[in-house]
Design a protein around this nucleic acid. Sequence first.
DNA 1: AATCTTGAGCGTCATATGGA
DNA 2: TCCATATGACGCTCAAGATT
Length: 220
Amino acid sequence: MTMETIESQQDGSVTDSVAERESADMQTQTGQNSIPTLAQVATIAETDESADSEGVIDSHKRREILSRRPSYRKILNELSSDVPGVPKIEEEKSEEEGTPPNIATMAVPTSIYQTSTGQYTATGDMPTYQIRAPTTALPQGVVMAASPGSLHSPQQLAEEATRKRELRLMKNREAAKECRRRKKEYVKCLESRVAVLEVQNKKLIEELETLKDICSPKTD
DNA sequence: AATCTTGAGCGTCATATGGA
DNA sequence: TCCATATGACGCTCAAGATT
């Protein structure tokens, strides 16, 4: 993405009002947003059709529907404890036991792909990938100001507020990137699990048919 | 070739969550 | 309770493929 793009996006987002976004159409064109969240899926399954017929859901109800669920990392780690072969998303540690610094190795069900924070490589049925832990170095544009105690003038206070905002935005930007990476990883793991379960299901069906044939041979 | 559609990715905001 | 982090939602751009 070009810098011009980023600039224009930032300009556009500033003009966004909460009310506008609250009333905005829930269905966007992006693939990410067209996929219902786990919470949404659960809610859809639970609720009757009256909610659909209402058509309009106010922001509070929407928030309830979209209530928070455990993080991808948490879900995936729970899955991994239930099912061997499902990879774990490890906590980001600066020091990894048994692995080089800033490198975490784990299994993942995809071929090669790469992100801004790590390179993923396929090595068989359950490939492994390596993630470089994100660097904590700040972009060159971000300058750490003096401690708040040394600020006096309104201008200094304003600069400090701006600096804090930029820092917060930068951190959130990185967090969003990481979150999306985890989400993709999570989805891929679920897909691989589906594939495994489908194979298992097929085998069981075949086994059942075989047993049926053995137990009830044809009479004619 | 021009236009439309679709999917992916990004930055930002609001808010839930969890740890200190 | 406060604060940092994680994540859903939204609006935007861009690229690639489909359609006219």
